[in-house]
Amino acid sequence: MMAQANVAEDTLLEIKDLKKSFSIATGLFGKPLELKALQNINFTIKKGETLGIVGESGCGKSTLGRCILQLIEPDAGQVLWLGKDLMSLSPKEMRQRRQDLQIIFQDPLASLNPRMTVGEIISDPLRTLRPELNKRQRQERVVRVMESVGLLPEMINRYPHEFSGGQAQRIGIARALVTEPKLIVCDEPVSALDVSIQAQILNLLADLKDEYGLTLIFISHNLSVVRHVSDRILVLYLGRVVELATGDEIYSTPKHPYTRALLTAVPIPDPKLARERSIDALKGEIPSPINQPSGCTFRTRCRYAKDYCAEQLPPLERIPGNRQVACLRWEQIESGEAEPAA
């Protein structure tokens, strides 16, 4: 009983059967189509953990992040924050939770108000979420987080257009940090930056996680980026979780053919190893989320698919090592019994 209590106390966020669809208009008199963005998403995050969420564009990664933060209202399921369902909260109650839940956006400059100074941008959440703080206290906190993210205090009265992309993203990170949140959703925070700047921002996030005791959800389409920051990695395909494991497990022994294909896209310096893994290269385009394939949604691009893959939706099942995978043939693929199509 004590062990169970410790597990519960360690869990910060729990997602249960989360679903989200969008209605797509087809014309003046046409019947709207349903775009299934998220389907039966389940996972937990422990305090101090970094969960990477990876997948191609259109797989539902950003939608998932926004549903967790209640920026988009899910259709069904639960978002349990410290055991309390955020979907059941009133707008006033949700506002009180906002200081614990923050987001870093993908495009640093587009996410900043060009008419506000850096100081105004960073302090804006405090005026909304921490009204008990006076002007001096807000100023002190802004200066402190600016220094934490590598911005000089004398930059406080400058405007966003005066900063580079990397500096602008540091402003966005400071804005997310200023309320001293427990969880930050990082929605592809380095994809718009140069490679050298990406490394700086990733190292900064790792340092801030330790300094502030943060829990992170790190969203990216690039597995090589996620690898450096994540304790566990959740692989998303067409709105469904297809694999969930630790970062080391994902990189050393991927189970799902989609995960194997994503790893093939990660550059490696050894030509021999690159040729050996080319057989799992990702083929074709991702299907439309409006008209998804029957059965396993990845089967239309999977070199190991059989006829029965079109008939049965593979459940997300636990396998040895406390991992999860949704594939009917993962054991045969791993053992070498499953021959890939030519």
Rank of each mutant, 00 (worst) to 15 (best):
R329K: 12
C67Q: 06
S335V: 11
R144W: 14
G213C: 08
I290L: 08
G213L: 06
R299F: 07
N134S: 07
E34N: 08
Y237F: 07
C186V: 04
P293F: 02
L152C: 12
P91D: 02
P254M: 03
T253R: 15
N40H: 12
Q312V: 11
L223T: 04
P32Q: 15
L80A: 03
E9N: 15
V185D: 02
V79F: 00
I250F: 02
I171M: 04
I45Y: 04
M1G: 14
F29D: 02
K47I: 03
L152Y: 14
D10F: 02
L38I: 00
Y251D: 12
A5G: 05
G83D: 06
V142R: 11
A265M: 03
S90D: 04
P293E: 03
K36N: 13
I53S: 05
L216S: 05
V7C: 12
P287R: 10
E120A: 15
A25I: 00
A310Y: 12
E243G: 04
A342V: 09
L28G: 13
N291H: 13
R136F: 03
L183W: 07
R277T: 11
L69T: 07
S252L: 04
N322E: 15
E339Y: 09
E154S: 13
N291Y: 11
I171S: 05
K84M: 10
L216M: 14
T117N: 06
I24E: 07
S148L: 07
R277M: 09
N113H: 08
M155R: 13
V178N: 11
P160Y: 08
D124Y: 11
G284R: 04
K31S: 14
Q78C: 11
Y258A: 06
F218I: 02
F163C: 08
C327W: 13
K135T: 14
L71W: 05
F298A: 04
K283V: 15
E147C: 02
R299C: 03
V145L: 08
N40S: 15
H228N: 12
S252E: 12
S220K: 10
A76E: 14
P153C: 01
H221V: 00
L82K: 15
E337C: 01
L244Q: 09
P181N: 10
M2W: 14
Y251L: 10
K61R: 10
L109T: 06
E188C: 02
C302I: 07
E120T: 12
D187A: 01
E132L: 03
V235H: 08
E276T: 04
R227W: 01
A341F: 12
R299A: 12
I319Q: 09
M2F: 14
L13Y: 06
Q312W: 03
S224W: 03
Q292F: 01
S88H: 09
R299D: 11
E334V: 04
Y212V: 01
N42A: 03
L244A: 08
G77A: 02
Q137N: 07
A174Y: 12
